[in-house]
């Protein structure tokens, strides 16, 4: 999980860094190496570190997940994919598939909620209204806070008590007479994970706003004016002209938020701690490690990695191609 509440700022639709590729051809083979050799050398410490600590350790984890090391004293014997199949078919109480379901619900609510709020704020602020800077700064500030810190206050806000024992948001609802709104939040067996998405939405909507705002501002004024001259109303202007221009922004946002969501750990540990209702794979890994079942913890980690890779790898390849073409 990304350390900070902040999303990896990546997405990296890395704009072209067109290098003088053709120039290589002009020099001799020896000269070529002399030409780019030092660059590769400067890069090599980082490459070695990443080769070991990203790819090497992933390979190690995969190997562990295929081993029979289910306790602190077990030997590292090869067991094959049994641990993986057990997770899906023989996990006690179907705990793993339950945690995947939780993750799915969380991701859905988190993505939709953050996109909705972010785009709405960006639309409201788009036209350079007076005071925009203040609104923007305040909408964004939760991003500077860690999930661990914000979890403290959200745990208080989402107090499960109702009626006389109502606390946090429920107390407000109670006080306003909106008792039907009082709910157990993160303790609700079915919708607990949806409530868990609230702090995450609070924290990241500002980020989505900032990205879309930059996107809006990047659209040439001529486009808008042309549309206006064609007699397009505001709604059609956005639908037909502006939103299509923002598809890359939306894709970036979905990738960033999606991969953050898969790794969600800090927030859950901070708001509820480990527990059945809000368990996701990342927390399950931690819980499994505490019982020293290394193979199982590794297997869950590998599945988590695959979930992320299924989305990220095509995206990275696509980006790489786009760059090459430009």
């Amino acid at each position: 999980m990304t350390a900070s509440p902040t999303p990896s700022p990546t997405t990296a639709p890395l704009e072209p860094a067109r290098a003088p590729a053709q120039k290589f051809r002009r020099v001799s083979a020896h000269g070529r190496v002399r030409h780019w050799g030092p660059g590769l050398l400067l890069l090599s410490p980082s490459l070695v570190l990443l080769a070991v600590f990203v790819y090497g350790l992933i390979a190690w984890t995969v190997r562990l997940s295929l081993s029979g090391q289910h306790s602190a004293i077990d030997k590292q014997t090869f067991e094959g994919t049994k641990t993986f199949t057990n997770l899906f078919t023989h996990d006690i109480s179907d705990r793993f598939t339950h945690s995947l379901g939780n993750l799915g619900l969380f991701t859905l609510v988190f993505l939709l909620g953050t996109l909705f709020m972010g785009v709405l704020w960006a639309l409201l602020l788009e036209r350079k209204i007076p005071g925009e800077g203040i609104f923007r700064a305040i909408y964004l500030f939760p991003m500077a806070v860690s999930f661990v810190a914000s979890g403290v206050v959200w745990r208080w806000l989402m107090n499960a008590g109702t009626g006389d024992r109502a606390g946090g948001l429920n107390a407000i609802f109670h006080g306003l007479g909106l008792t039907f709104l009082e709910n157990p939040w993160v303790l609700d067996p079915h919708w607990g994970m949806a409530a868990m998405a609230m702090p995450a939405i609070w924290q990241l909507s500002g980020y989505v706003m900032a990205l879309f705002l930059a996107g809006f501002r990047g659209i040439p004024a001529e486009l808008r004016e042309a549309a206006a001259m064609d007699g397009a109303g505001t709604f059609r202007l956005y639908r037909n002209v502006i939103f299509p221009q923002l598809t890359p922004t939306a894709l970036s946002v979905l990738i960033i938020l999606g991969h953050m969501s898969m790794k969600m750990f800090d927030l859950i540990m901070s708001v509820t701690g480990p527990g059945w209702i809000t368990e996701v794979p990342a927390v399950y890994v931690w819980q499994t490690l505490l019982t020293s079942d290394f193979a199982k913890a590794a297997a869950i980690s590998v599945i988590l990695l695959l979930l992320v890779a299924v989305v990220i790898v095509p995206y990275l390849i696509y980006n790489n191609r786009v760059e090459r073409r430009s």
Binding site: S93, R95, L290
Partner: peptide, 23 residues
């Protein structure tokens, strides 16, 4: 053992939310 404790604790937590005694 820790492993048994972990499994039982998880099952108990599930029961607290769904009240499914058979499960």
């Amino acid at each position: 053992s820790q492993g048994m404790q972990g499994a039982v604790a998880s099952a108990i937590g599930k029961f607290s939310s769904d009240q499914d005694a058979a499960a």
